[in-house]
């Protein structure tokens, strides 16, 4: 991914994390409002979050309620997206799956972001042996093609939601370590870092109050892109049988199960969850594009 030239002004003002962060996010918020495509992506995500939170209100059926007599029925008024091979309502399952998929995406990326950024920032600031060791560790993780590592660790940990989150976080964390380390390395040479240091702030304060908030927006682009990869990786793991355990609804698993019914003409089983994934990833990508614009308006798409 492109790392932007640091456009940050040498701002040594408020030392309050939240306010600083908001200061950095004010402009992105403006851009999101202004660009219709980005706004679209953003709105879709907001909508998805609402769906996820209000799933019990939106779903028309219990997503786990099995009803053999109603198995494999095409979309109708009773079952908007049809029923699956167990007679479960596909629409309700997709709604509930939104919850799980967003949860997987947010927690895994959040975990990777938090661990990766903190470690990367510390390593970048203090340098020395620990930095060296950490970077070698990152090298080792990045020596594996991500999906191979994901497959190996998922098989080792066993199927299940929590394990998928760990696995996806593991393959994404090194990106944040490297990004944060690079940002901190360049930021700590700047005058305001020097100033913060001489004013008696401890190194940790300098890192987390003065330096890191300036780097967050750059990392946010990465987060938006990685959210979509998290969902795709989870889906890929489902395909090879290492995904979320049944009967829990999850889009990747639903597509994978539904594909077994593709040739027998039960198209609704894979089409609707597929659509859900495409829309979600599209939204994350449009948002990522928009965020990228924020930091380099010349490249606006």
């Amino acid at each position: 991914m492109t790392t932007m030239d640091d456009a940050a002004p040498a701002d040594t003002g408020r030392s309050w994390w939240g306010a600083r962060l908001w200061g950095r996010l004010e402009y992105p918020a403006y851009i999101i409002r202004r660009n219709p495509v980005t706004l679209f992506g953003f709105s879709v995500i907001v909508l998805l979050v609402i769906i996820a939170l209000a799933a019990p209100l939106i779903a028309t059926h219990d997503p786990l309620a099995v009803s053999p007599a109603n198995a494999l029925e095409p979309p109708s008024r009773q079952a908007l997206f049809g029923t699956d091979q167990y007679g479960r309502d596909v629409f309700s399952r997709i709604i509930y799956a939104t919850r799980l998929d967003l949860f997987i995406a947010l927690t895994s990326v959040g975990l990777a972001f938090a661990v990766g950024t903190v470690l990367g920032a510390l390593a970048g600031y203090f340098a020395g042996l620990a930095d060296n060791l950490l970077m070698r560790l990152v090298d080792v993780i990045m020596a594996f093609p991500p999906f191979i590592l994901a497959m190996g660790t998922a098989a080792a940990l066993g199927a299940g939601t929590a394990n998928i989150i760990y696995v996806v976080a593991l393959i994404q964390a090194p990106i944040y370590v490297r990004l944060a380390r690079g940002e901190i390395l360049s930021a700590k040479e700047r005058p305001y870092a020097e100033a913060a240091h001489t004013m008696g702030n401890s190194p940790l304060q300098v890192i987390f109050i003065h330096l890191l908030p300036n780097c967050v927006p750059v990392l946010l682009v990465q987060v938006a892109v990685n959210l979509s990869w998290a969902i795709l990786n989870a889906a890929g793991l489902s395909f090879i049988g290492l995904g979320v355990r049944p009967p829990t609804p999850e889009w990747g698993g639903m597509i994978n199960e539904g594909m077994a019914f593709m040739l027998s003409g039960h198209w609704w089983l894979f089409f609707f969850p597929g659509l859900a994934i495409v829309i979600t990833i599209l939204a994350f990508n449009l948002l990522a594009d928009g965020l990228r614009d924020v930091f380099d308006p010349r490249l606006r798409w």
């Binding site: 889906a235 890929g236 594909m259 593709m262 597929g274 994934i277 495409v278 599209l282 990508n285």
Partner: peptide
């Protein structure tokens, strides 16, 4: 742009089939 975004949006096992 459309190609860039849609290409990424579809799971590979699905496009393959």
């Amino acid at each position: 742009r459309v190609l860039a975004v849609t290409g990424v949006s579809m799971p590979m096992f699905w496009t393959g089939l």
